[in-house]
Amino acid sequence: MGWFGVEFKKDISHVSEHLAIGITTGYLGSLTTFSGWNQKMLELSASGHWVISALGFLIGLSLVAVSIAFGVETAKGFRWLLNRLNLTSPENGISKINYKVNSYHCQMTAMVIFLVILGILWGVSGALVKAKFKHGGSAAELWFACMVGPIGVWIRWFLARLNGRGLGKKGLFQWIPFGTLIANVSAACVMAALSTIKNAVNTRDCDTVVAGIQFGVMGCLSTVSTFAAEFNAMRKTNEPWRAYVYAAITICVSFSLGILIYCIPYWTKGFEIDT
């Protein structure tokens, strides 16, 4: 994300804004998952490992901050190398590549190509789910997740338009990216609820469907990479405390609701955590 979502995002947008969104919101946003991270900490807490759970959040957040900073710095180093090789414009540092996907014909062609690819992938995933579902296991869960994963991406893309708007007509707290916040918190809550259902029903078919939805929809709906980019951007402003407030709100709200949704049923019903 430090490369394609921060340092080189303007270069990619110069070629195609849709490509920039696809790489950052689509690929990188889906590659990382906040809901899975939160759920693992809930499972540790439910088992009584509160200290390890707290350390998991602290160490995880530290790694996130270091990773995004490292990515940005290495990307700047690569840009410096491009400048030395005279491959970027000296005025703005943007690549000298002049090709742009900004015409109607180019956009329609790209859309058709990617829709065909999506259809093929959906078809392959559906066929493999049909073949593997009756046997259960990780293979069936994986291919089911591939089928439903795009739903999470689309929801997160839709919620992204809430970032920077703030609350109400006056736009209070515009510095909080509410779109990302809602995506991460809601995904964490649904992830916890699905885990509770999985423990309560405890059948092979239910496990396959629930795990597929968790891994696919919730994994793609929540994101750490975008969260990290926003956290890093806030740290570089004149009010860096906002980054830590934003991180605290995201983690505390998700974890607190997760305790109500997952841990309390676990403690009262005596479920066993499937590790």
Rank of each mutant, 00 (worst) to 15 (best):
M1Y: 04
F4Q: 01
F4H: 03
G5K: 00
G5A: 07
F8C: 00
F8N: 01
K10N: 13
D11A: 08
V15S: 06
E17L: 02
I23F: 06
G29H: 03
L31F: 14
T32Y: 13
T32V: 09
S35T: 08
N38D: 11
Q39R: 10
E43S: 14
E43D: 11
E43Y: 03
S45R: 03
S47R: 11
H49W: 02
W50N: 08
V51K: 09
I52R: 10
A54M: 15
L55G: 10
F57I: 12
L58G: 12
L61S: 06
S62M: 13
L63S: 00
A65V: 15
V66G: 04
I68S: 02
I68G: 02
G71T: 08
G71D: 07
T74C: 05
F78I: 14
L81R: 14
L82S: 10
L85Q: 02
L85P: 00
L85F: 09
S89F: 04
E91C: 03
E91S: 13
N92A: 10
S95A: 12
N98A: 14
Y99M: 10
Y99E: 11
N102L: 05
C106Y: 12
M108R: 12
M111C: 06
V112I: 15
V116A: 14
V116D: 05
I120A: 15
S125Y: 05
S125P: 07
L128F: 00
L128Q: 11
G137R: 03
S138I: 08
A140T: 07
W143P: 01
F144S: 05
C146N: 12
G149D: 06
P150F: 09
W154A: 13
W154F: 13
R156E: 04
W157S: 09
F158W: 13
L159T: 03
N163S: 08
G164W: 05
G166M: 01
L167A: 09
G168L: 06
L172I: 01
Q174W: 00
Q174L: 02
W175M: 04
I176Q: 04
A183L: 07
A183D: 12
N184L: 06
A188W: 01
A192W: 04
A192S: 15
N199D: 06
N199R: 06
N199A: 15
V201H: 11
C206F: 08
C206S: 12
D207E: 14
D207T: 10
T208S: 12
V209W: 06
V210L: 06
Q214W: 01
F215K: 12
F215T: 14
G216I: 00
G216Q: 02
V217R: 03
G219V: 04
T223V: 09
T223H: 05
V224M: 14
V224S: 03
V224F: 09
S225M: 04
A228E: 07
A233S: 14
A233Q: 11
M234Q: 12
R235E: 09
K236N: 14
E239C: 00
P240M: 12
A243S: 15
T250N: 15
C252F: 10
S254L: 07
S254F: 07
S256K: 00
I264H: 11
W267M: 11
K269H: 15
K269Q: 14
K269R: 11
G270T: 02
F271H: 12
I273C: 06
I273V: 13
T275P: 00
